[in-house]
């Protein structure tokens, strides 16, 4: 028991700060970039650009995050673009996430009736005003619950960045295992720390779903 409180928990909690940092930073990238992509995809009307965004989204969504991280971290280093592990983790998960959030925002936009933009244009608003003042705020509300679900998934997915040596929870767990061999104790503590972080988040997501309507299929 002493060992648990004196060594294991402090180690895992140090890792947890990196887990939280990576989660928040990549969430920020994903939520912003995904929104820009969704705006362009929904309103630009340029075929070539739309195709490029579709390709970007499908490429990122149909390949494991681990694979993307290896390309970023090991692959780019081999041709002279070395990125250290935590930035690589944040960029990798952020880009993958932008593909997910792009789809979330788009289904938010498509949930709005066509009549809204027609009415807003008819009373003399410019297309930009319609997008910013009428459509986006509503699409964002629809997108909130699935965005929350995505954040929950992201928190768990940060565990894969241990594979590119970013010192988060699973990384500390593995390195403590090599020095102490307390595998059962260490890995179950790690699982419980994740649970302690994700339970409040899951509770928040459920509240969002109750308030803004259920999950859409993204």
């Amino acid at each position: 028991m002493d060992f648990l409180t004196s060594t294991i928990l402090p180690g895992l909690l140090t890792g947890a700060t990196v887990t939280i940092t990576v989660t928040l930073a990549s969430l920020a990238i994903a939520a912003t970039l995904g929104f820009l992509l969704a705006l362009v995809r929904e309103f630009s009307g340029l075929r070539l650009l739309n195709f490029a965004i579709d390709a970007y989204v499908e490429y990122l969504r149909n390949i494991p995050a681990l694979s993307h991280l290896f390309i970023l971290y090991f692959g780019l280093a081999s041709i002279g673009f070395a990125i250290t592990s935590i930035p690589a983790a944040i960029i990798g998960l952020g880009l993958v996430g932008s593909a997910v959030t792009c789809d979330i925002y788009r289904s938010g936009f498509s949930a709005l009736g066509k009549g809204q933009s027609e009415a807003a244009l008819a009373v003399g608003m410019t297309p930009m005003q319609v997008i910013w003042l009428i459509l986006s705020p509503q699409a964002f509300r629809v997108a909130l619950p699935p965005l929350g679900n995505y954040a929950l998934q992201l928190l768990k997915d940060t565990s894969v960045v241990s594979a590119i040596a970013a010192p988060e929870i699973m990384f500390y767990a593995r390195s403590m295992v090599t020095s102490t061999f307390q595998t059962t104790l260490i890995y179950s503590s790690a699982a419980l720390i994740y649970l302690a972080m994700s339970l409040p988040l899951a509770w928040g997501v459920t509240r969002l779903e109750k308030r803004f309507g259920g999950a859409t299929d993204v």
């Binding site: 997915d157 565990s159 241990s162 059962t184 890995y187």
Partner: peptide, 23 residues
């Protein structure tokens, strides 16, 4: 459902492969 929704797949794999031999 709550447990497995809240814990990363990687942590579960490590628990099964490295952790369970401990017991």
């Amino acid at each position: 459902v709550i447990f497995f929704r809240g814990v990363p797949v990687l942590a579960i794999l490590f628990l099964i492969y490295f952790g369970l031999p401990g017991i």
